[in-house]
Design a protein around this nucleic acid. Structure first.
Length: 512
RNA sequence: GGCCCCUUCGUCUAUCGGUUAGGACGCCAGGUUUUCAUCCUGGAAAGAGGAGUUCGAUUCUCCUAGGGGCUGCCA
């Protein structure tokens, strides 16, 4: 079917931590590549030196690694199309060569207007009532560029080292259309486009230039990126055309955006911690400016759950299956099934996914986790015990840490007693029941689940009491809480001595 | 403002002209459970509005409205 190899790239710019929307873009690229037995490439788009953030590249790589979406080729991995950092690619004059080609063919021109001058023109236009002044086929005639200046003047300025940029020269009134895999045909008239800068005065290409050159040189077959790129796709098409690469141009697929759960707009980095969930895969701390954002990994999410959740934000297999491994996702994925509209992030659903993945773990695996968490609290327990405790409480866990949170009663005697339960269920009566139970339990030879339960129930019968009269007080005395797993199992695990000791403590500490 | 994209339950979504419009999360109710959680059962909940095409539109077209994106020598 596919005679051409699928090669896709994820091309983030290292300007900060990778947001979950970016992770999803990477994921879809990865899935598409795997589905078609192609290659997934990581390219670092660091053409903006002013926005460079130390550690960001490492963060991106670490995040992908945590998620399990490993590039086959690219920055940090290597490959035959390197280097994979645009700042390094620029060193060889790579981009400049193609810029000169465009200059020579008349599809680009030099512009000497400074940022300040442009800003002033824009400001003026705004005051005159036009909010978006553009450097285009009409305004370029009144600007300082190689179209308005004489050849000698241009030569002189260039020779004098005058700062300049190179802009694309767009034709007037031309329909540009391309077929997006997700959205179908998209048409734009060049009259509504502007002469974008291709080459900056600092010697760096802009995204528009670098991405076309690199995608071409790296033999990228499909460009799968966020919807924010849709408006510039026609420009990119024109560039392929002017560079003579239109026949091998990659296919485009513009992904729907991830939206804020509340209100409007796309999910942004400040949203998460504001609304009580992370927007980043990994925690991010920037000592330089004090930026600090929480991450899914540190919050206790399984990468598999995180990835599964992300996959479903904008895509759906068309079946009822919701739990997918990465391999299954790779098999089921298709761009045609990607939804067009933006997807609102739902944190409850994310937690649900995590709970599902926790349940896939065996009791022994859960026990191991509990054992190591206990060790962090300087408590040593053997695996068999940890496993049986984990089995007892796993149904109430969403995160692995819940295993410890829910089971600490087994290792640490209560120092406080739940207020609500105390005021509702603890009184002189219940106190006397506990005194009876202490007596009964201390006479039990085999202190196990069955015997405790039998003794307890026999006591209830003899006193003609309902479970509700004694149970809550019993739980309160032993665990300090108003809820939890079966008390017979709790006591059995605690052992006779500890159980009795706790009842004693409660009788001392809790006034009738 | 201009240009582009989008629009099914609160949320994520299925439906590729004919369905009692399905599922999941969340929510509510009932059951199981001494309690909580789990689990089981059930429930409420959607095609933005208006034209058209058609025997028949959620599905195709157009308009309106709403939402989103872009509008930098940022990506």
């Amino acid at each position: 079917m596919e005679s051409n190899t699928v090669r896709v790239r994820f091309a983030p710019s290292p300007t900060g931590p990778l947001h979950m929307g970016g992770v999803r873009t990477a994921l879809y690229n990865y899935l598409f590549a795997k589905k078609h037995k192609g290659e997934f490439i990581l390219r670092v788009e660091d053409t903006d030196q002013t926005r460079f953030v130390p550690g960001a590249e490492k963060y991106i790589i670490d995040s992908l690694k945590w998620c399990g979406i490993l590039p086959d080729e690219g920055q940090g991995i290597g490959g035959n199309y390197g280097p994979y950092r645009q700042s390094e690619r620029k060193e060889s004059g790579l981009y400049k060569k193609y810029v000169e080609q465009l200059l020579a063919s008349g599809h680009a021109y030099y512009a000497f207007d400074t940022s300040e001058q442009l800003e002033a023109v824009r400001e003026l236009a705004k005051q005159a009532g036009s909010p978006n002044w553009q450097y285009n086929h009409v305004t370029r005639n009144s600007m300082r560029n190689s179209l308005t200046l004489s050849g000698e003047e241009v030569e002189k300025l260039l020779a004098a080292g005058e700062p300049y940029v190179v802009r694309i020269k767009l034709p007037r009134n031309e329909e540009v259309k391309f077929e997006d895999i997700i959205r179908g045909w998209v048409k734009v008239n060049t009259n509504n486009m502007d002469d974008k800068v291709l080459f900056k005065s600092d010697g760096m290409p802009t995204y528009h230039m670098a991405n076309i050159v690199d995608d071409h040189l790296m033999k990228i077959s499909h460009v799968i990126r966020g919807e924010e790129w849709l408006p510039s796709a026609p420009l990119h098409l024109l560039m392929y055309r002017y560079l003579g690469w239109e026949d091998t141009m990659p296919k485009f697929a513009h992904l729907p955006l991830l939206l804020k759960p509340d209100g409007n707009g796309k999910l942004s980095k400040r949203d998460g911690d504001r609304l009580g969930f992370p927007v980043f895969p990994l925690e991010w701390n920037n000592p330089e400016n004090g930026d600090s954002f929480s991450g899914y990994r540190e919050k206790g999410y399984f990468p598999e759950a995180f990835v599964n959740m992300l996959a479903f934000l904008g895509w759906n297999p068309g079946t009822d299956q919701e739990l997918f491994t990465l391999e299954e996702l790779s098999e089921a994925f298709s761009l045609e099934k990607v939804h067009k509209a933006g997807a609102r992030y739902d944190h409850d659903k994310t937690k649900w996914f995590n709970q599902q993945y926790l349940r896939k773990l065996s009791d022994e695996q859960l026990g191991e986790s509990l054992q190591s968490q206990a060790a962090e609290h300087n408590i040593t327990i053997d695996l068999a015990k940890a496993t049986s405790i984990a089995n007892l409480i796993k149904d109430r866990a969403v995160f692995l840490r819940d295993l410890w949170n829910e089971s600490s009663v087994f290792f640490v005697a209560p120092t406080e007693y739940d207020e609500k339960t105390t005021s509702k269920k603890w009184n002189a009566e219940s106190r006397s029941y506990l005194i009876d139970l202490r007596e009964i339990f201390s006479n039990l030879e085999n202190f196990n689940i069955e015997s405790i339960e039998k003794a307890f129930k026999t006591y209830l019968e003899s006193k003609e009491l309902g479970f509700g009269k004694v149970g809550p007080a019993f739980r309160l005395a032993v665990t300090g809480a108003g809820m939890g797993p079966s008390m017979f199992e709790v006591c059995a695990i605690l052992g006779k001595e500890e159980s009795l000791a706790r009842i004693n403590t409660a009788l001392e500490k809790l006034p009738a």
